[in-house]
Amino acid sequence: MAETRRRGEVLEAAIAEAVWAELAESGYAGLTVGAVAERARTSKAVLYRRWPGRAGLVMAALAHHAPTTEDVPDTGSLRGDLLVLLRAIAAGVSGRSIDALWGLLTESARDPELAALVRERLAELQRSGPVVAIFDRAVARGEVDAARVTPRLLRLAPDLLRSELLVYGAISDAAVVEIVDEVVLPLAGV
Rank of each mutant, 00 (worst) to 15 (best):
P52L: 04
T75F: 08
A55D: 12
M59L: 15
L78M: 07
P67Q: 07
G76R: 08
V58M: 00
G80K: 10
A45G: 12
A55W: 00
H65G: 12
V72D: 09
A66R: 10
R49Q: 15
L57R: 01
G76L: 07
D74A: 12
P73T: 12
D71M: 11
R79M: 09
A66G: 10
A63P: 06
G56R: 01
T75M: 00
L47Y: 00
A45Q: 14
A60E: 09
M59T: 09
W51D: 01
G80V: 05
H64I: 01
A61E: 03
M59G: 04
Y48I: 06
V72Y: 08
A61D: 00
D71T: 11
S77P: 05
G80E: 10
A61W: 00
T69S: 15
T75K: 05
G80W: 12
G53M: 05
A66W: 11
V72I: 15
V58D: 00
L78Q: 04
R49I: 01
G53Q: 01
T75H: 03
A63N: 12
T69C: 09
V58F: 03
G76N: 06
P67K: 03
A60G: 04
E70A: 15
W51Y: 15
L62N: 01
R54L: 02
V58H: 01
H64P: 01
A66T: 15
R50H: 13
L57V: 03
G56P: 06
L57M: 09
Y48G: 02
H64Y: 11
L62T: 03
E70C: 06
H64M: 01
A63H: 06
D71E: 12
P73Q: 13
R54D: 01
D71I: 11
T68N: 03
P52V: 04
M59D: 09
L62S: 02
E70Y: 04
R49V: 08
P73G: 09
L62K: 04
R49T: 12
V72K: 08
R79Q: 13
V46Y: 04
A61T: 02
G53P: 08
L62V: 14
T75C: 00
R50W: 02
R79K: 10
R49N: 14
R54W: 00
V72R: 06
A55E: 14
H64S: 07
H65S: 14
L57I: 08
E70G: 15
D71H: 13
R50C: 05
R54T: 10
G56K: 03
G80S: 11
R49F: 05
S77V: 06
P52M: 03
L57C: 11
H64K: 02
R79A: 06
R79W: 12
D71W: 10
D71Q: 10
A60D: 03
